[in-house]
Design a protein around this nucleic acid. Structure first.
Length: 1102
RNA sequence: GCGGGCGUGGUGAAAUUGGUAGACACGCCAGACUUAGGAUCUGGUGCUGCGAGGCUUGGGGGUUCGAGUCCCUCCGCCCGCACCA
């Protein structure tokens, strides 16, 4: 009775199928464990041996957890929508549904071949209407929601409408455009379309405009990776950027939560780091630089400056308002009278540095009291300096003291002026503040919350900064501490301001430079060595703290899409700024003292700031805070957090994807679940099924193929959306559907999602690091916010499998001949290496006959052999068809069996490390299984398991193995577990005792389920081995009572000596020192120290 | 350039907390059984040396009784991001 794996595996698969042993119920009495593989896309190529690596690992873990008494959910399904199927359809005319079905069947067959314990009754496919019905439903939830920044969660859009009706959007910044402002009255007066347009700017799933790659020749929109080197991948046609209305998901609102909750996840540091990079949060400040030459009054006052810069006055100055219409207008907190600002400013600085005791106390209390509003101190309003002011509430707080005496202005004129500006003034005496601070704060609080306070704001808020006509260049910086080191500014060449600020003298140079930047393809920018280019605009900005004139440049190293598209150049502290200044001979201000050498920027984030006014002597961290505070106080900047993350494009101009449940009525998009006005009727119902199309050609104007189906697009109520959703739509929530896959009323019932909860173990490759894994986290958070599920992170533990690389085989053709030389002799010839199919090579020895038949041109090939063999060269590469190194798991399974295949994949090395596949090595594992089989059955004698009592040694090896296998599985160290099985079977050689072999069959079940099931039944058990319990090891068999110690002299191991495990140092020392060998190594010297670490080692120091 | 990971025999690798480096396999060598071996079994196999021994975890340095493991430094490879302010 030999190990006939073919018979065994076929029989056991049939048994599992018949008994439905993998069917999982939502049985809440057992602890649950949810183990998931990343959703495969069923490509036409089928699986190669690299794909199942993660599936085998999760299968082992799932079976182990089941043996440990868990209710294990371990499902599988298919991410079935996608571009390749559509591409194939365009090429062959076959419907994507047909080819997808075929590919899935093939995948399923290959997966079944390996013996996975998936509960196929829970299979989901994203392209099935009963699945994408719920993808559409979730889209509608996102469409009907907005992100409340104050509560940091998604809320129904109806609640936003209610807020608008109550108070406009005064307290709810519009995420799409901060400038959008309206009050309740205005909201009420807006038309339906205007209201819907505003709501669109708040929705989590929203419409906006985005640039897409449009290819005229193909008449279609291309994905980023379909554009290669600036032309279309297919056909090499030219492409251009085209602005199109697109759907987006407002993932940027979740940036901070996506970032912080990473800390709660058990993912690899590399994976978390990739997500952190992608989100790209940077803390800093937005600093506003005023353009120097746009204010005649200012120039007049600062006569000398105006003169030296007269030639630099930008056209915007003379053109006046027209030129700055699109520039940012001075924000509301710039309340100073521009005529007097310069002279008051210095005075203010003095005041600020010499606060009275009472002012100090009140300032600290105002900051600490969390009044919910921002106060500024020593703020300039018109001609006056207010002690404290809360601009949003138009409230001034004065503490009587030096100010009145010093300024000596008449109270009457002052109050009149402030009242005119809409301010209310509260006055406290020094004594009041010092003696009864609580009372003062209470009064301020009351004043702040009085209804009058709000009304006044609305009436007067618009009067500030209106029509001032000054141009500001906002920049984002992570290093506000270097503000005194600013020597120039750089705008992105595409920056909207460039045209307005460029002087006539510089116009030509700027135009030429901008033309140059436009001509630079992505490819050139990527491949060219870093070189400094740029152009001076002729304009100057004014340093907000020093009034210095700062030249404004443009350069391609500043990106339009990042931050504000402009930077402040600090050459002494930033490498690129330094190179820029050096290249264009811009004088460099040193703000780092000795640390800056003049040769290279000091970009380290530790050290002290020098030569920087009030920042001088502060650490970088302190200076950053102080600089931000100062900039905020004088209204030249705000603390700001910047993210690299962009909103996710959510529409594709394609056929094979989920249709949007959206309809346009009078060009306004509505969710089809929205009730029509004054009616219970809805626009439609879910799912919006994907219609059959005749062909897959794009629609007019770059629209998707659906646009061609006139009678589908046009309905009696409105026009359908013709875009489809992107590939990640269906995969962003599929893990929820497995919990309750046949539910036709909900995407999954709340009891089901509450029970199965988070995925306990998620296994997949790193390629989804920032796509799928980020989107599904966001969807989970949104569904959580809206109350549909009870957890806000989908994947608790993530395990990344490494790649299995191919091992390519080469033959060496002697140049210009049909002769091939064996690898060992190739150095004597002029040769060309040629890849050969790895399946024609046994190890490294070429099957010459197979090679001759491979290609007609090799039929007459001649070979120069070594030792009668043709030896191939080998190289590790990615496993791919084009490299002829693909190994199909089906072939391996048919030759060695699924159990051998599974164990070998695990034996190759750590699961998360990439390693090359070597078919030759599989024989070791196969031999092991045969050897194990022979413990149970003999070729001649048949079944040989007996009921003899096991020896102590046999029990020891068994229990040590039970312990190690359990521990290794828990820490996903599957390769060492396989080794332990080998050690165990080697040591049990000749043992045929049931007492040992029955537990062994159970613990190997996760790895080699077929043979385990077979042995389990042959041992006389009923039911599947999966219903057995993973045996517990007994402590007394895993702890030894003696230990063979390595005995070292001066750290070098010399001999081994055995001692009882609990031996005391004194007796050990005595015996060791008496030992002849040790004596020899001591060379008569006295030991200085005797180190005895119980259970570890012994070291004698001389 | 920045961030993360890694570097151990001919090969895949092991060493879980600082405690006998190379477990377990592949390959290779020798042998047994055999008509045969791409079956099975036994023994050997880091390098070096006749040997006692010496050397050895990418290189160099350090901490320690003791370092593959910790620290510094340099080199190389892989992954991610990349004129990211």
């Amino acid at each position: 009775m030999e190990y006939n794996f073919r018979e065994i595996e076929a029989g056991r698969k049939k048994y599992w199928n018949e008994q439905q042993v993998y069917k999982v119920t939502n049985d809440t009495s057992k602890p649950k464990c949810y183990i998931l593989d990343m959703f495969p896309y069923p490509s036409g190529a089928g699986l190669h041996v690299g794909h199942p690596l993660g599936y085998i690992a999760s299968d082992i873990y799932a079976r182990y957890k089941r043996l440990k008494g868990y209710n294990v959910l371990h499902p599988m399904g298919f991410d079935a929508f996608g571009l390749p199927a559509e591409q194939y359809a365009i090429e062959t005319g076959q419907h994507p549904a047909v080819t997808t079905e075929k590919n899935i069947a093939r995948y399923r067959e290959q997966l079944d071949n390996i013996g996975f314990c998936y509960d196929w009754s829970r299979e989901v496919r994203t392209s099935e209407p009963n699945y994408y019905k719920w993808t559409q439903w979730i889209f509608l939830q996102l469409f009907h929601s907005w992100y409340d920044r104050s509560q940091q969660k998604a809320r129904p859009i109806s609640e936003l409408v209610a807020e608008f009706e109550k108070g406009g959007n005064i307290n709810i910044t519009c995420p799409a455009d901060e400038a959008v402002e309206f009050d309740a009255v205005q909201w009420g007066n807006y038309s339906e379309k205007e209201q819907r347009d505003i709501l669109m700017q708040y929705r989590i799933a929203y419409q906006g405009y985005a640039q897409v790659w449009w290819c005229e020749a193909l008449g279609t929109v291309l994905a980023n990776d379909e554009v290669v080197n600036g032309v279309s991948e297919r056909g090499g046609h030219p492409v251009e950027r085209k602005n199109m209305r697109q759907w987006f998901l407002r993932i940027t609102e979740y940036a901070d939560r996506l970032l912080t909750s990473l800390n709660t996840l058990d993912w690899s540091e590399a994976m978390k780091e990739m997500q952190r990079n992608w989100i790209g949060k940077s803390n800093g400040a937005e600093v506003r630089f005023r353009l120097s030459n746009l204010s005649p009054t200012l120039s007049k006052r600062e006569g000398d400056v105006a003169q030296t810069n007269a030639r630099d006055l930008s056209p915007a100055l003379s053109k006046g308002e027209g030129g700055v219409a699109q520039a940012r207008v001075e924000p509301g907190w710039n309340t100073a009278d521009p005529l007097l600002y310069g002279s008051i400013k210095d005075f203010r600085k003095d005041l600020k540095n010499n606060l009275t005791e009472a002012e100090n106390i009140l300032w600290r209390q105002l900051k600490a009291s969390q009044l919910g509003v921002k106060f500024r101190r020593q703020h300039i309003i018109g001609r006056f300096i207010a002690d404290f002011v809360c601009l949003p509430k138009n409230l001034i707080i004065e503490v009587d003291g030096k100010i009145h005496e010093q300024q000596k202005e008449a109270d009457a004129s002052r109050t009149e002026y402030l009242a005119e500006k809409g301010f209310r003034v509260m006055r406290f005496t020094n004594e009041e503040v010092i003696a009864d601070l609580d009372n003062v704060i209470r009064k301020i609080k009351t004043e702040l919350t009085s209804p009058q306070s709000d009304n006044e704001v609305r009436n007067t808020s618009l009067s500030f900064g209106e029509g001032r006509g000054e141009v500001f260049i906002p920049v984002f910086t992570t290093r506000p501490d270097t503000i005194f080191g600013v020597d120039f500014m750089v705008l992105a060449p595409e920056h909207a301001l460039v045209e307005d600020i460029t002087t006539p003298e510089q116009k030509q140079a700027i135009d030429e430079y901008r033309q140059y930047v436009k001509s630079r393809s992505e490819r050139e920018r990527m491949s060219e060595v870093k070189q400094v280019t740029g152009c001076f605009t002729g304009a100057y900005a004014i340093h907000p703290l020093t009034d210095r004139q700062i030249p404004v440049w443009i350069s391609e190293y500043v990106l339009a899409g990042y931050g504000t598209g402009a930077i402040m150049g600090v050459p002494s502290g930033d490498d690129r700024d330094h190179a820029f200044a050096k290249h264009f001979d811009i004088p460099i201000t040193n703000i780092f003292g000795d640390k800056y050498t003049g040769e290279a920027a000091y970009s380290s984030k530790t050290g002290t700031i020098e030569n920087s006014d009030f920042l001088t002597g502060m650490s970088i961290a302190d200076a950053t805070e102080a600089a931000i505070e100062e900039l905020e106080d004088i209204g030249a900047g705000t603390r700001k957090v910047n993210y690299r993350l962009r909103d996710a494009g959510f529409s594709r101009q394609r056929y094979w994807g989920e249709p949007f449940p959206v309809m346009y009525v009078d060009d306004i998009p509505y969710g089809i679940d929205e009730p029509l006005i004054n009616s219970d009727w809805h626009l439609g119902h879910l799912p919006v099924e994907l219609p059959i199309v005749e062909n897959y050609k794009p629609g007019p104007e770059g629209q998707g193929p659906l646009a061609n189906i006139e009678d589908w697009v046009t309905t009696p109520i409105g026009q359908r959306e013709t875009n489809t959703m992107p590939g990640y739509a269906g995969s962003s929530w599929y893990f929820l559907r497995y919990m309750d896959p046949h539910n036709s009323n909900e995407f999954a019932s709340r009891p089901a999602t509450d029970y199965w909860n988070q995925v306990d173990l998620y296994i997949g490759g790193t390629e989804h690091a920032v796509g799928h894994l980020l989107y599904s986290r966001m969807w989970t958070k949104a569904l959580y916010d809206l109350g549909h599920i009870g957890f806000d992170e989908p994947f608790k533990k993530l395990l990344n499998q490494g790649m299995i690389q191919g091992s390519t085989r080469f033959v060496y053709r002697i140049s210009d001949t049909n002769q091939f030389v064996s690898a060992g002799l190739k150095k004597h010839y002029d040769i060309n290496p040629i890849r050969v199919d790895v399946n024609m090579v046994d190890g490294v020895e070429l099957d010459i006959e197979a090679f001759k038949k491979w290609r007609p041109e090799y039929a007459d090939a001649e070979f120069i052999l070594e030792d009668g063999k043709y030896i191939c060269g080998a190289e590790v590469e990615k496993m791919s068809k084009s490299k002829y190194n693909v190994v199909n798991p089906d072939d391996i399974v048919s030759q060695y069996g699924a159990d051998t295949f599974r164990m070998y994949e695990m034996f190759l090395g750590p699961i998360d490390v990439s390693k090359p596949w070597d078919t030759k090595g599989i024989e070791g594992v196969h031999r092991f299984l045969k050897k194990m089989w022979r413990l149970y059955a003999d070729e001649q004698k048949g079944w040989i398991v007996n009921d003899e009592k096991a020896t102590d040694a046999e029990l020891r090896i068994l229990h040590k193995t039970i312990k190690k296998i359990g521990e290794d599985i828990e820490r996903f160290s599957f390769n060492t577990a396989v080794s332990q099985f080998m050690i165990c079977v080697n040591e049990l050689s000749g043992c045929h005792k049931r007492e040992i072999l029955e537990p062994l069959a159970v613990i190997i079940c996760p790895f080699a389920p077929h043979i385990a099931e077979e042995l389990w039944h042959k041992l006389g058990n009923e039911g599947t081995v999966l219903n057995a319990a993973f045996p517990a090891y007994e402590q007394r068999f895993v702890t030894d009572n003696t230990k063979v110690y390595p005995v070292a002299v001066n750290g070098k191991t010399r001999i081994e000596m055995e001692f009882p495990i609990d031996a005391e140092q004194a007796s050990v020392e005595k015996e060791v020192l008496a030992n002849d060998t040790i004596q020899k190594w001591l060379e008569g010297k006295d030991p200085k120290k005797f180190i005895y670490v119980k259970g570890k080692m012994i070291n004698v120091v001389v």
